[in-house]
């Protein structure tokens, strides 16, 4: 049978990336700063968000989408503070934009200054999925070890900020903040590193200031005058 070869040269994620880019521009127009939080399970994403809500109180309108394989546990923890939707993936190891859209539709239809998307705990798959975020933040807890950036290059390469969590445990574990920082800088030269202990509200001021600074930077570049 005759055959014919067709040259394509197209990334299989190109449509998804275009959709994410389009959504990101919409978020920008709405002045909602979207943060995608990624880490291993148990690194402290929910605890960091609890501390963030405690710190800001009513300063900003915040909404949260939390991804897990099952249960409403994370949403239940954050519900006393802010509007939150749990996204249960039913086994999938990462969130995709389509799931984020479903969660957004269930949130109150009002303006949010910050939307936090807490990804499924996993240092591999979420790295490949653009959720239309403005900022990807990777959390690394002191109990995980300071060698993680080099071992998970894609996750750390695609993140702009690294938050080292559980700093209160530093005296008890062999974790070297400098070593983790140097390692992350080999992967991403411009990585901004912040250290926190969310349980005791330490470092949360720096974390929140970084978010406010980046939000302001982004929206000052947009032509639309600020409404708030």
């Amino acid at each position: 049978m005759p055959e014919r070869t067709i040259v394509i040269n197209r990334d299989i994620q190109s449509e998804r990336r275009a959709a994410a880019e389009h959504r990101r521009q919409e978020f920008t127009r709405q002045k909602t700063f979207v943060v995608n939080l990624v880490s291993s399970p148990g690194a402290g994403k929910t605890t960091l968000l609890e501390a963030t809500c405690r710190y800001w109180k009513d300063r900003w309108k915040i909404a949260v989408l939390v991804g897990d394989l099952a249960t409403q546990r994370d949403a239940d923890r954050l519900r006393p503070f802010v509007p939150v939707q749990q996204l249960t993936t039913g086994g999938a190891c990462h969130l995709e934009l389509s799931l984020v859209e479903k969660g957004l539709a269930k949130l109150p239809q009002e303006h949010f200054d910050f939307l936090f998307i807490e990804n499924v705990g996993n240092l591999v798959c979420p790295a490949s999925h653009d959720l239309a975020e403005h900022l990807r933040v990777v959390l690394l807890s002191t109990t995980e070890g300071d060698d993680k950036p080099g071992k998970y290059p894609k996750m750390f390469r695609t993140s702009e900020v690294m938050v080292i969590t559980k700093m209160d445990l530093l005296p008890h574990v062999p974790f070297d903040v400098d070593r983790a920082t140097v390692d992350s800088h080999l992967i991403r030269d411009s990585m901004e590193v912040i250290t926190v202990c969310s349980l005791h509200d330490e470092g949360i001021h720096n974390w929140c200031q970084m978010l406010e600074r980046r939000r302001e930077q982004l929206f000052s570049e947009v032509d639309v005058p600020c409404s708030t």
Binding site: M1, P2, E3, R4, T5, I6, V7, I8, N9, R10, D11, I12, Q13, R157
Partner: peptide, 16 residues
Amino acid sequence: VIRGDEFRIASITLDE
């Protein structure tokens, strides 16, 4: 990064 982050369809061959 200018190369190496792709998962790309290079070509397909069809039975005509």
